[in-house]
Design a protein around this nucleic acid. Structure first.
Lengths: 203, 203, 203, 203
DNA sequence: ACCTTCGGGACACCCCGTTTAT
DNA sequence: ATAAACGGGGTGTCCCGAAGGT
């Protein structure tokens, strides 16, 4: 944050966002630095001024773009719902069931990177693991709130539920991507709702 | 099938298996033809004698190695169990819960390729989709058998259940890969069993 | 020229010789692989088929081009002279004093590489050291012959003389290169002859 | 020398000295501007404020660091000796024979640059030539003094001797660098002394 | 004036998947 | 079935200029 400029570090930010979009679509190994800079108004010289290597760019994308996005999309909105189980189902229906078909074919950005880079590079592994844990922890907090508020079976293990909720998100993304048919969402979503009902507090 | 040789097409088979192993670990884009042939007793010339391009090799790996393997590991063993729900749980516990930790870090071969290649190449997409559908259909057959035999709620949608069962498999693989801790299997497995119980036939 | 040709591996040889010439003129660090291949009828792909890295090419140039050349130019011709001291002086006069001025400005190939690469890379250092030792040993053999034949003071240390003879060769090359005036050869050569006279056998 | 500042031109001086040291070890082409500035407390911007190009820096290193150093190390000390031949031998023994082994492996700064840059760039060539001539002239002055004082054969050509003395310095540096063994100094030094004796004034 | 951050392209070395000649 | 050759592209570095703060 330098001086009075309104766009303090726009170059870096622009590169990060473009890189995120390209990595999202072609994978980290499938994108070249040339392709990324070609989609920005800058050159490779500017790129390597901000990021020493492509790998470091990848790390920055995870930390500065992907992780905040996961929290913003999947955790924070839950605060708007009194019953977190309702929130989870509604958000899933909203962000996946009603998403553009093109997005569904590309899957979940976090899941994509986990599948591709976790076994290859430990730097990625650590950061992606951290993102996953953050996501799960965020869900867990809301599950506990739902237990306190009497919506969820208080004897259930909140952490275990949170893990499974995230698993179902990743699983849905993966299945839609693999099946290539957005229509597959409804049956899968039905099973999700059935699971969520099974952990409601007994009335 | 060349005549008197006891290993009719050993070259092609060896390449396929080596390629499968390398692709499994580094991804399709992360492996080079050189690396693959270096792990076989053959040369690059032999490689291009059997496969016109790297992409065609990838297709052959999916069709001739990966897809049979999925059926053999996840569908056929279910025939050994009277109750398919028990079979699903037992196989999952056996092949994932008791697998070597190194395998868990590399995930599910099918899921890996789906995540990496489905959005990039339509040839891969079709073949991987076909593999997924085959897997799901195989499960569905056993689910129907379980309904007929009175183990599973007969009013449930067998196809929907089969989809979710596969989703849970891929989800577990993905979560274990992302969390990097094989210990995460037990809590996830607990949720899987809870779901399976929820679709049992009412007694 | 391929097949039953008497030059079975011409590509590698051509690259080696072109590389030697370029390195001779611009130094190893001063030449790019692109420049080298541009001066051959081949492409970069062919280059990296024969040499895994630029460094390995450099090693091969030392071993396969430079070292044989030193022996051929500075050691073998001495066999033609009954008195090796005469041979040393005549060869020096012939190969340096009457060489094209352009050659003198570029110095001695061995000395050039020693100055540039010895302190930087141990692989170069070992090979260049070996070339120097070979040169010195060759000279020493002829010095001993001269002692047996009664031309050289038999009490002198043949190895020490050989070292100094090589030193004078490198020194002359270096001075001519540094002074940039081929005319400087005569006074330097006069001192060389004076030294050689000082080790003649006493009459 | 700028007036009231206590460090008149420290930035430029610091860069020059760091550059000299780096060029000494890796050669001019082997050092990058980045490496040089990284070893100073300044940035690349400061560098290019003082030196328009890397080449100009190289020229400045020759003129302002290397050349004064040569005079100071190899010419001025000779004034301390009544007999310049003794001075030459003693200084050589002192500055080479008793130098740290690490220095010997890096050779003579002047010689290094001559070998590397003289054939490549005329600006370097002129300046290095000038440095060499200065060195030789300095030696020649002392040789004449030695002739007047009766230590050196008065019929000898002082310029020729001076050239050969410098040749021997460069030759020794080159041989030690190439052979990689500081132990080689003694035999070489013995030959040097023998040459020096051969030009003594006849008694 | 001095120094810094930022950016620009050209080019470095090396590897890629592939074809051709043998 | 092979070794040799092919180019185009991979990441990263090079030297340097531009705009602006102190």
């Amino acid at each position: 944050v330098r001086g009075k400029s309104p766009h303090p570090d726009s170059t870096r930010t622009v590169i990060l966002e473009v890189a995120f979009a390209e990595i999202y679509r072609h994978g980290f190994q499938g994108v070249s630095v040339d392709e990324i800079v070609a989609k920005t108004p800058f050159t490779k010289g500017a790129f390597y001024h901000h990021f020493p290597t492509k790998l470091v760019l990848g790390y920055a994308v995870v930390e500065e773009v992907l992780m905040p996005m996961m929290v913003q999309r999947w955790v924070e909105p839950l605060a708007l719902y009194e019953n977190p189980l309702v929130g989870i189902a509604c958000q899933m229906d909203l962000l996946i069931g009603h998403a553009a078909p093109s997005v569904l074919g590309t899957g979940c950005p976090l899941n994509n990177l986990v599948q591709e880079m976790s076994p290859i590079d430990s730097g990625f592994r650590r950061r992606l693991q951290s993102a996953l844990v953050t996501w799960i922890s965020g869900i867990e907090t809301h599950i506990r709130r739902g237990q306190s508020a009497g919506f969820i079976d208080p004897t259930a293990d909140a952490g275990q539920i949170a893990h499974f909720v995230v698993l179902m998100h990743e699983g849905i993304f993966g299945m839609l991507k693999g099946l290539g048919k957005p229509l597959a969402f409804q049956p899968l979503f039905a099973s999700v709702k059935q699971y969520l009902r099974s952990i409601e507090a007994p009335t």
